[in-house]
Amino acid sequence: MTGLLSAADLDPDMLAEMFRLSESFLEVSSRRIPKVPALRGRTVVSLFYEDSTRTRLSFETAAKRLSADVMTFSVGTSSVNKGESVRDTIETIEAMGIDAIVVRHGCAGVPAQVAQWTDAAVVNAGDGAHEHPTQALLDCFTLQQRFGSLDGLRIAIVGDIRHSRVARSDVAMMSALGASVTLVAPATLMPPSLEGWPVATSSSLDDVAGDVDVVYLLRMQTERMGQHLMPSMREYTARFGLTARRAARMNPDAVILHPGPMNRGVEISGEVAELPNALVVDQVRNGVAVRMAVLWWLLGSGTELVPSVDSAVPTADVEDDRG
C-alpha cells in the first residue's frame, strides 16, 4: 500500500492489524516519554487546504511521537495565494525530499490526484464531501475498544449525511466490520441517492435512539444553513438533536460519538456531551494512536499492507539479525 485514500483501502484483516498496532501506540502515548525513534529521519508534510484543528494537530502529534520531522504547509501564508497550482506545490515540496503527504482539500478526489503526482505516501485527511478514512479508523477503533468487536453492532449516524465525508468513510468501514448502520436525517440532508449504500434510513431520531448501541452525531454544518436545507437550527435540534431527554431513552450500554467540533446546543446538548458514555475524548486520544499506526504502516513497517501478516520472513537480501 502506498497511501491511505479511502476507507475501502482496508479490508477487515488489515483493520484488525491496524487496531492491534494502534494498541501498541496507545501504550507509547501513555508513557512518561511518549516518543519512539521508529520514523527518525523521515519527513511528513501536512498540506491542509481547508481549516482543521484536531485532524491536523492529531497527525502532527502522531508524526512527532514517531520521531518523524513534520513540515507544516499553511495555505494562508503560502504561494497558493500567488496562484500556485496544487501540482506545482506538490512537485516543489517533493523536491525537498519528503516521505509522506497528509492532504486535506475542499474538493473530492484531490488526494487521489496528488498520489499520481508523487512517490511519497499520501494520506487523505478529508477531501470535500467524499472521504475521511482516518476518522473512520479512529471511530471503529474506539468502538472495538468499547465493545470488543463491531460485528452485529447497531449504529445510528445522525445529521448532515449529505455533506459529510465522515459519514461516507464510517458507513464503509463500519459495515465492512459487520455493524448495521442506520442513517438518520431529514430528507434534505440525505444524499441525493443511497444506491449501493449498505444502510437503512430513518427520519426520526426518536424512533431509532432506543434501539441502537451507538449514536454517532455529525456536526451540523451551520455554514451551509443558508442553503435552506432546514428551516432553522431550533427545528433541527427539536427533531434531531441529542437532548438529555432523548439520551435518557438510549440503552444503558449505548455510547455517543461525535467527530468534533461539537456545536453544543445544536446536534448535542451540553449536558449530554458530558455523560460518561459520550466517548468524544476517547476518540481524540485514539485518533493520535491510529494515525501513528497509519504512518508507521506506510513509512516504517517495511511490510505491505496485505491481509496475511506472515511477514516475519526476512527479505532475501537482508540478513535476519533478530536476536
Binding site: 494498541e23 501498541s24 513497517s301 517495511g302 526476512p314
Partner: peptide, 22 residues
C-alpha cells in the same frame, strides 16, 4: 517490552510489533 519501534533495521526488513509493552 516490545522493541519493534526501536530496532536499527527499520526499513531494511519487515518490522512489526508483537504486542503492546506492559
Amino acid at each position: 517490552l516490545d522493541v519493534a519501534f526501536y530496532r536499527d533495521d527499520i526499513g531494511l526488513r519487515p518490522v512489526l510489533p508483537e504486542a503492546a509493552s506492559d
